[in-house]
Design a protein around this nucleic acid. Structure first.
Lengths: 144, 144
DNA sequence: CCCATCTTTATGACATATCATAAAACCTCA
DNA sequence: TGAGGTTTTATGATATGTCATAAAGATGGG
């Protein structure tokens, strides 16, 4: 029984959160998606990752990342400087505008998280986290 | 800290499950997506729902449901019979082929769930379920 | 140096998510 | 009954998810 609705609840929880998060970002007049925000945040820390490495960090795939990078660049939040030692790649630097966007979104994200998790205790959160990681691990393809 | 990675884990868990589920459906040679399967399952039980009602049951939106219904119909898994009392709507009936598809997918879904949840105890599952519902509720827009 | 192979990026094709809106049918009330 | 508001469906636009593949650069062995 529970078995059959658990994944529905899982889907519903993350999707509810995403809707809330995007709505609050939109309401603040910020023109960025939460996925783009996530990628931008990673790039602030590391500017010499391949698309595949970025994808692994944000648990997306390379094709999605490629399109998000193109959009972020188009919107001036990211700049792509050719890397001298590899003609295929570029150094992805968060621009000034990108930095301002990250700064503006940050408090909203904190608030979203607080809203979503209100009334949930620390130890419950830890358990939730652990169970979610267990599920992801159970579903991961065998490395062989 | 935990706060900041919880939603990442949530996203990762559901996405890992979806990848596993779709991969196993594909491997069985069945030409259907898990989202379409979910909708088809709902329609087996209720054949007189509006798209909005279907959307609420599967936690999607009406536009997505409309497109999935069109695809399911195109693939012959669903038939749309005009409803006499309302010219806008149709009665959505799962066809014979649709029924066979549901029958074929069912054991795969059971197996997927078992794989994803292996090693997780009943009471942990119950707690997980409860926490996920709490999060969804916390994120739900105020009804006003 | 050249070829085969690997890596990296870009993109096509299709499905879904989301918001917005158009079009048609319905329904209510004056 | 007819006008105005509501419900229902369809669809456009844009972003992402996924798989597959093309194209270009890198790399290593001969």
């Amino acid at each position: 029984m529970l078995n059959s609705i658990l994944f529905y609840s899982l889907d519903k929880a993350i999707r509810s959160y995403r809707r809330l998060a995007q709505a609050n970002i939109d309401r603040a007049g910020l023109d960025i998606t939460i996925d783009q925000w996530l990628v931008l945040r990673v790039l602030l820390e590391y500017d010499d990752l391949t698309q595949q490495e970025i994808a692994e960090r944000v648990f997306k795939d390379q094709a999605s990342v490629a399109r998000m990078l193109a959009l972020l660049t188009k919107r001036g939040l990211l700049s792509a400087v050719p890397l001298p030692h590899d003609g295929r790649r570029t150094q992805l630097r968060v621009t000034e505008a990108g930095q301002q966007m990250l700064d503006a979104v940050h408090p909203i994200v904190l608030e979203n998280r607080a809203t979503a998790l209100s009334g949930i205790k620390e130890d419950e959160l830890a358990m939730l986290q652990q169970l979610l990681e267990r599920i992801a691990l159970n579903c991961a393809p065998a490395v062989s």
